[in-house]
Design a protein around this nucleic acid. Sequence first.
DNA 1: ACCGGGATGTTCT
DNA 2: GAACATCCCGGTG
Length: 197
Amino acid sequence: MTVLGREFYARDPKVVAKQLLNKVLVRGGRSARIVEVEAYCGPIDAGSHAFRGQTSRNATMFGPGGGLYVYFTYGMHWCANAVCGDVDEGLAVLLRAAAPLTGLDELRSARGPAAKRDRDLCSGPAKLCQAFGLDRAFDGADLVTGDRGVTIIDDGRKPPRRPGNSVRIGLSAGAEHPWRWYVEGDPNVSALRLRKE
DNA sequence: ACCGGGATGTTCT
DNA sequence: GAACATCCCGGTG
């Protein structure tokens, strides 16, 4: 039961992404096992918010690894990333889905009536944020120090030896990169929808 | 089950 | 003014 340290995040996000599978996101009494992630690789990645350089929106991505980058999208949703690498690199891993472990009542009440089954609580990046109450107020929090009460821990379960892999979901630019990984067979992994052209 | 469309507002062109 | 790292609901098979 150890909190992931700075050195865990200070690497290539494609490596960090795979290593984050089966780690546990914690906020207070709420916790869930991470089962689906995507890597976003800065200036070389047309699908990344960091592709066109630093702005006020994505500033957290350019901070040190271990930061929590929370952004607003589609007019109503929040998504959370673990920042990777070093200062000014603009690298991150999007937390896409998780398997609820503890604090189920809190997760349910935060998600509302649309979440009928436990697998509806955290089976998508915006659902996960809603379930954990992550919004603008958490952008820039430090996962390493547990700043603002959010952290990621290792409870001893190893990442899958052979994770599922695909292109990333919902992108137009950068859609060719196969930088999504997930725990094969987990019911909380979000549905793979192909983007209409 | 698998589609299609609407909600909703910030960000960048 | 368009795009957007999404979700939910109501149609149809």
